[in-house]
Design a protein around this nucleic acid. Structure first.
Lengths: 340, 340
DNA sequence: ATGAAAGCGCTAACAA
DNA sequence: TTGTTAGCGCTTTCAT
């Protein structure tokens, strides 16, 4: 027999209807508080009748915990990040947390996003593909808000970070390519400043230096996504020093390069040209592509990030730490397997 | 000269340091309140020194507005929804709102998600690809929380909804296929109960009834995504009544069907078999696929949803309304264009 | 323009 | 176990 209540119902009204105190109401809605079965029953009935739900904000104010985790997302282009978002949401939800989501388009306003999130008293902070300023990171540390950076290294930043071993990836890729007989490598990257890419390309350079006969014939930045990839391959192919292998900083880019090479340029991949991507998004495994790419250990990264965040949420004394996940090269059909 | 403050700073401490009252502090941080330039200055300095940021939760409690919009996301498989999420986040953020995100895996726990969001006093609610129970929708209405359903019709539900004209899409598709000479259509859908698909398939049936010679040879449900599509095409092709056109309820499914047909079965698409998708995700336009598909007007839907939500947030008296966006068939290479 | 006082809805000590 | 009291951090009348 539900009485229609208009507007918000407070514990006060429930208490009145149930003939108990507001504390009693509070207690029935608090896990493991001491209430007699009888009062509990009365309260529950009254609450149901009025359609009462405790105000989580008011509660948060006093228990000093909002059960909200802030998430700053700076990268949307890559499907890979979407997957992260979903997983984070599900995993944290399972632990009783909600995600307060903020998007940051330019690297610069990450700070704004973090600040806003902090004002909402989030219990913790996940920052994907960006990093807050040192000042702000310190502010988080001061307020005791654990932050974990995903896909960015936290150099001296009072924050945990989960990345993958980019240098290792770079070495593996070059080694594989050279062993298969490719000699003139080209790098296609997105934004010039991205650390993970820089690390990787440095490693590639180093590995290349140790490989006799092989060299880097191009290293272009500013190309990210399918369209960019499809366009850049023509430029590279028709240049003075055409590559016989192209390493891309993301799968969509690599897929664009692949289509550009095969469809627009009539190049035989992998015989005339090798293409390797980064990420291993589902589409890369699809029949029309079968892209050889670096599998980013998304799940492992998420596991690490969530575990660390949860641990530091539970015990604020825990120190932040850097974590690295391991990427592996997955061999498909865009790199030939043996020297021909 | 920033003094390092450990832990949370309140307006009280700022007031003390600035030698003013807490009201003065509040006013300097409230848009358009009357404060003298002098006090304002003092407060700002003190705030900077202590690293003070107003507590948004405490503020929300009193101004009865959290500037948070709840978003429950019930569908992640399709890249199309990711795009929505991003856009919603950016648009609402631009208007000063944050997104509180909740994921709902089974249609049933949408109610739970909504309830949780309501407890957090969200100002409004966006529900993507799911709908809350009637009881809960009424609860939202009672608390004055505007709800907009995206991709679900709000039948008698005190909520706005934005959908696209599925019946029209169904008719257009059939008409196009039949005009091109295809006669034996098959439908491949995801979860059996999804209303948009039901509407569309009903329309397809009706349109087919009016087309002499053409008929529906199969209507299978439970197939969603690339892998499912790639698998189902073989079953369909080898059945007693093989289709000469397959309509899928999502692009990834259609892409799987396409690869299955061409790669696994050696079928000539579009000569022997037509494939049409739904959604028009970026991959569908990629060179290796060039899928003929229905372009879902995502941007238009988002515009409508955001505009309606914002309007009702500003004026709670506004009634909810149903909105429909218009989808169009985009012709690419998986349906032949003329009767051959 | 400013401060004092009263509360937003809730929980946590403390008594009883 | 229960109710009373105090107060989380903030905004907002209401006087001044």
């Amino acid at each position: 027999m539900k009485r229609h209540s208009s507007n918000k119902v407070t514990s006060h009204e429930v208490a009145a209807l149930a003939g108990v105190s507001r504390s009693a109401v509070s207690r029935t809605f608090t896990e493991g508080a001491s209430v007699s079965a009888k009062t509990r029953e009365k309260v529950l009935n009254a609450a149901a009748e009025l359609g009462y739900r405790p105000n989580a904000l008011a509660r948060s104010l006093i228990v000093r915990s909002t059960q909200m985790v802030g998430l700053v997302m700076a990268e949307w282009k890559n499907p890979f990040y979407t997957r992260m978002l979903r997983q984070f949401s599900e995993r944290l939800q399972a632990e009783g947390y909600q995600l307060l989501l903020l998007t940051s388009n330019t690297e610069t306003d990450v700070d704004d996003a973090v600040r806003r999130l902090l004002q909402y008293q989030v219990d913790g902070l996940l920052v994907v593909s960006a990093k807050p300023s040192e000042a702000l990171a310190r502010e988080c540390a001061n307020t005791g808000t654990p932050v974990v950076l995903v896909n960015r290294l936290a150099k001296k930043l009072q924050a945990s970070s989960v990345t993958c071993d980019n240098a290792q990836i770079g070495r593996d890729t070059v080694e594989h390519l050279v062993a298969a007989g490719y000699q003139r490598l080209a790098l296609v990257r997105g934004a010039p400043g991205v650390l993970t890419n820089i690390e990787r390309s440095d490693a590639i350079r180093t590995a290349l230096a140790a490989a006799p006969g092989a060299k880097l014939v191009a290293d272009v930045t500013g190309y990210l996504g399918y369209d960019a990839g499809r366009q850049v391959v023509a430029e590279l192919w028709n240049s003075a020093a055409p590559p016989d292998a192209i390493i891309c900083s993301s799968d969509p880019t690599a897929l664009g390069v692949l289509d550009g090479a095969r469809i627009d340029l009539g190049i035989d991949v992998p015989e005339q040209l090798a293409v390797v991507g980064m990420g291993d998004i589902p589409q890369s495994g699809w029949g029309a592509y079968r892209l050889t790419t670096v599998h980013l250990p998304v799940d492992e990264m998420i596991d690490l990030a969530v575990a660390d965040l949860l641990a530091r949420l539970a015990d604020p004394g825990l120190p932040p730490r850097p974590m690295i996940a391991h990427a592996t090269l997955v061999n498909r059909d865009t790199v030939r397997s043996s020297h021909s």
